[in-house]
């Protein structure tokens, strides 16, 4: 049961999902790019009365190569760093135009900002914080492929520790990225907005219900979605969902939400796999030594401990495999 009063139905199985596709095929996202799947479901949940602002990035360039568009709902791209500000303007304009009767006041129009990790963690961070602080009713969806994939796999604030990218190459001196991934969803949560969640497309029922909640709350909502990238993470595209699943099974990616201040893990993992299962599937971690893998494992162990402590119960279980 959903714990919030919502007008959209709770999704329980694929059969509950609308058949309508608001992201048309014919886009040029790489084969196996999970961003396509994420946006498809985001739009299914949102429906046609929706305006989407997309930051510069993979989704933007792949879906709107002039004169073709894959969008069946009104869509705008302005720049890399300001999806949140543009969305703020749209939301404010709808409010005042409905007040003045220029737009039908009874029509509910969803405003969604969609941006990648570069457009959110890094260049778009200030605009995002501004939107959250001002409290615009906007759903901000971050599709996180953990590097600047559109420009060719450069390191971002969302790139995980030790990952190879084209700007953190593996050589005699450098061994991939030497910093941790920025905890963006927690930073967003620190703004005390009504809804923050992390989601994983492999657990799509969990993901679509989070989209639903994000669209229902009265104020900003932020959903951070992991988006495996076969091109940048260096794996066979057929394993995109497998990789996503392993991220959660190893607790490298924990699906949680904070709804009106209440924190919960929405996908408990009773038995946890070793991070090596996730890392070894991806070429970007190919150079990792056992010692480095153990370092990542220790970091994840601490994260799990922190989450369990925060909830006062064990939602993410011990390492078994």
């Amino acid at each position: 049961m959903s714990q919030s009063a919502t007008s959209r139905p709770v999704y329980r199985s694929p059969f509950d999902l609308p058949r309508e596709e608001y992201l048309a095929p014919g886009h040029s996202l790489c084969a196996g790019c999970v961003a396509g799947m994420i946006v498809r479901h985001l739009l299914k949940v949102a429906g046609p009365n929706t305006i989407v602002v997309t930051a510069t990035g993979c989704v933007e360039v792949s879906t709107t190569l002039y004169p073709y568009t894959s969008w069946r709902i009104p869509w705008i791209h302005v720049a890399f760093e300001n999806a949140a500000s543009v969305a703020s303007g749209i939301e404010a304009a709808i409010k005042v135009l409905q007040r003045k009767g220029v737009i039908d006041p009874n029509k509910r129009i969803n405003v969604i900002a969609l941006a990648g990790d570069g457009g959110t963690y890094d260049i778009g961070f200030q605009a995002l914080s501004g939107l959250l602080e001002r409290g615009h009713k906007v759903l901000y969806v971050l599709y996180d492929n953990e590097a600047y994939m559109n420009t060719g796999i450069q390191r971002s604030g969302g790139t995980p520790l030790f990952a190879w990218t084209t700007t953190t190459p593996v050589g005699k001196v450098w061994k991939g990225k030497w910093q941790q991934k920025k905890p963006i969803a927690e930073i967003v949560a620190a703004h005390r907005i009504p809804y923050v969640a992390t989601a994983n497309p492999a657990y799509f029922i969990d993901m679509v219900n989070k989209f639903r909640k994000g669209l229902e709350v009265d104020g900003p909502a932020f959903i951070h979605v992991i988006q495996p990238c076969p091109t940048g993470w260096r794996f066979d595209p057929r394993y995109s969902i497998k990789v996503a699943k392993l991220a959660t099974e190893t607790a490298m990616w924990i699906n949680w939400e904070i709804e009106n201040g209440e924190f919960r893990v929405t996908v408990p993992v009773p038995k946890r796999k070793h991070v090596k299962h996730y890392l070894r599937m991806q070429g970007r971690f190919r150079h990792l030594t056992d010692k480095e893998i153990e370092e990542i494992q220790r970091f994840i162990d601490r994260e799990v401990e922190y989450i369990n402590k925060r909830l006062g119960k064990e939602v993410i279980g011990p390492l078994v495999e």
């Binding site: 608001y22 048309a24 095929p25 014919g26 886009h27 040029s28 879906t63 709107t64 002039y66 004169p67 073709y68 568009t69 894959s70 969008w71 069946r72 709902i73």
Partner: peptide
């Protein structure tokens, strides 16, 4: 401004 007026016309570009 290069607006695209035909929604979802990427279906004309098979992949």
């Amino acid at each position: 401004g290069g607006a695209i007026l035909e929604p979802g016309n990427s279906v004309k570009r098979p992949t």
